[in-house]
Amino acid sequence: MTLATYITWIILPLLGLGLLTTFIRVVRGPSLPDRVVALDLMATFIIAISAVYSIASNEPSYLDAAVVLALITFLGTVAFAYYLHKRSSNA
C-alpha cells in the first residue's frame, strides 16, 4: 500500500468525518463561543485536508493555501476573543 493510497482511502475520509461532526456542532451548539470554537476546528480540518491532499498529489501549492487559511483563522479567533472581552467588560 503506497502513501497516496493510504491517504486517499483512510486519512481523507476520517478527516471528512471529523469535518462533518464538527459541522453538526456548529449547527447545534448551545452558545456562541461553542459555535466559534467549532468553526475554528472546521478550519483546522480544512487545513489538514489541504495539507494531506498536497502530500498525496505531490502538489506543494496546496500547502501555501493551507498556510494562508491558518493565518486568517488565527486572526478571526483573536478578533472573536477581543469581542468577547469587550462584551463582558461592558456588561
Rank of each mutant, 00 (worst) to 15 (best):
Gly76Val: 01
Ile72Tyr: 06
Tyr82Lys: 13
Lys86Pro: 01
Thr22Glu: 04
Gly16Ile: 01
Phe23Lys: 01
Leu75Asp: 01
Leu63Val: 06
Leu32Ile: 09
Asp34Gln: 11
Val27Arg: 02
Val78Pro: 07
Ser89Arg: 11
Val26His: 11
Ala51Thr: 07
Ile47Ala: 11
Gly18Trp: 00
His85Met: 11
Tyr83Phe: 14
Ile55Thr: 12
Leu15Lys: 02
Ile46Trp: 10
Ile46Gly: 11
Leu3Glu: 08
Leu63Gln: 05
Tyr82Ile: 12
Val27Met: 06
Ser89Tyr: 09
Leu84His: 06
His85Glu: 15
Asp64Leu: 12
Glu59Asp: 15
Ala38Met: 13
Leu17Tyr: 00
Ser89Asn: 11
Tyr82Trp: 14
Val26Ser: 12
Gly29Thr: 10
Lys86Phe: 07
Ser57Lys: 10
Thr73Ile: 01
Val27Leu: 06
Gly76Phe: 03
Val36Cys: 06
Pro13Thr: 00
Gly29Trp: 14
Val78Lys: 03
Lys86Asn: 09
Thr21Tyr: 15
Leu71Trp: 07
Thr22Asn: 06
Ala4Glu: 06
Gly16Cys: 05
Thr73Cys: 11
Leu17Pro: 00
Lys86Leu: 11
Val26Phe: 12
Ile46Glu: 10
Phe23Ala: 13
Ala65Glu: 13
Asp40Phe: 10
Ala4Ser: 09
Tyr82Thr: 05
Pro60Arg: 01
Ala70Tyr: 05
Ser89Gly: 09
Ser50Lys: 02
Thr73Phe: 03
His85Ile: 05
Ala43Phe: 03
Ser88Trp: 05
Ser31Leu: 05
Ile47Val: 15
Leu69Ser: 11
